[in-house]
């Protein structure tokens, strides 16, 4: 049975697109048939983060409006054959998305893939609402920072009231993904701790992604971090999160950067 997953946050810039690419790639690397769908119409970036920006011919809007067939718009990843991308339109705006069109496209994707991962736009406007509407599972991406936590709380409220599942009186499965976490700063009381964020938002924790240079390096070269540096701390955290999404029980570890001698001597001190 195909699962529709929305990666959402309310606030922009917290790591939705990075997490969509990394979780999608990690699930595909574990053998699942995955499509990642960019719902950020007008400001698409999932193509760039996935390294497929020069292969976009047709997009979600073309398929929603019936101007292209789904198979024409899907871009198969060159590194993992069971990973595909459905890009957003860069020239149109969110009004081109219709609820009926989105429902038809999601239905078609469910027939082809195990996981349909929707990368939501920021905000609580039409694009974000349509991205979450058909979801079975939601990953709420949150930075350990006050404005991100507040916006996540708002989005959680909407997941519970404005999705198809909620309207049918069913519960939507929600998971918290904490990104850009710095264990040292949290230990020194400079940053909200994992426990703080989990307690405030009260949804189950899916994973803790550390603030890491690997994430920027991966997006620089257009590769999900789980492909670019699979042994790094960020990738390992995403692999664990992907396994939890698939129903496995994986022990939660707070990822810590292992510092070399030079950075121990000259870098910033770690608690």
């Amino acid at each position: 049975m195909a699962k529709v997953l929305v990666v959402t946050s309310g606030k922009g810039g917290v790591g939705k697109t990075t997490s969509t690419a990394a979780l999608g790639a990690a699930l595909a690397q574990n053998g699942a048939n995955v499509v990642v769908v960019d719902f950020d119409v007008g400001l698409r970036n999932l193509d760039l983060v996935m390294g497929a920006e020069r292969r976009v011919v047709y997009d979600l809007i073309n398929v929603v409006q019936g101007d292209a067939k789904l198979v024409q718009a899907l871009i198969r990843d060159k590194r993992i054959e069971n990973l595909s991308l459905l890009p957003a339109s860069q020239t149109r705006d969110k009004d081109a998305l219709t609820p009926e069109g989105v429902e038809r496209v999601i239905g078609e994707l469910k027939g082809k893939f195990d996981w349909v991962i929707c990368d939501s736009s920021a905000g609580i406007e039409k694009g974000a609402m349509l991205a979450m509407y058909h979801a079975d599972v939601a990953v709420v991406v949150t930075n350990p920072e006050v404005s991100s936590v507040r916006d996540s709380d708002r989005i959680i409220g909407m997941l519970d009231s404005k999705t198809a599942k909620a309207e049918r009186g069913e519960a939507i499965e929600k998971h918290l993904l904490i990104t850009r976490f710095d264990a040292g700063r949290a230990a020194r009381g400079e940053m909200l701790s994992v426990d703080d964020v989990v307690e405030i938002l009260s949804i189950p924790l899916l994973g803790i992604i550390p603030e890491s240079e690997e994430v920027l390096r991966a997006s620089n070269v257009g590769s999900p971090v789980t492909l670019a540096s699979p042994a790094g701390i960020a990738a390992r955290a995403y692999f664990d999160a992907a396994r939890r999404l698939s129903g496995e029980t994986v022990e939660m570890v707070v990822p810590m950067e292992r510092k070399g001698l030079m950075s121990r001597l000259f870098g910033r001190r770690v608690a």
């Binding site: 006050v146 936590v149 507040r150 020194r188 009381g189 400079e190 909200l192 701790s193 703080d196 405030i200």
Partner: peptide, 14 residues
């Protein structure tokens, strides 16, 4: 440390 302040402000606001 300011994380405690952040936590309390969020709890009241939310």
């Amino acid at each position: 440390p300011t994380a405690g302040v952040a936590r309390e402000r969020l709890q009241v606001l939310l």
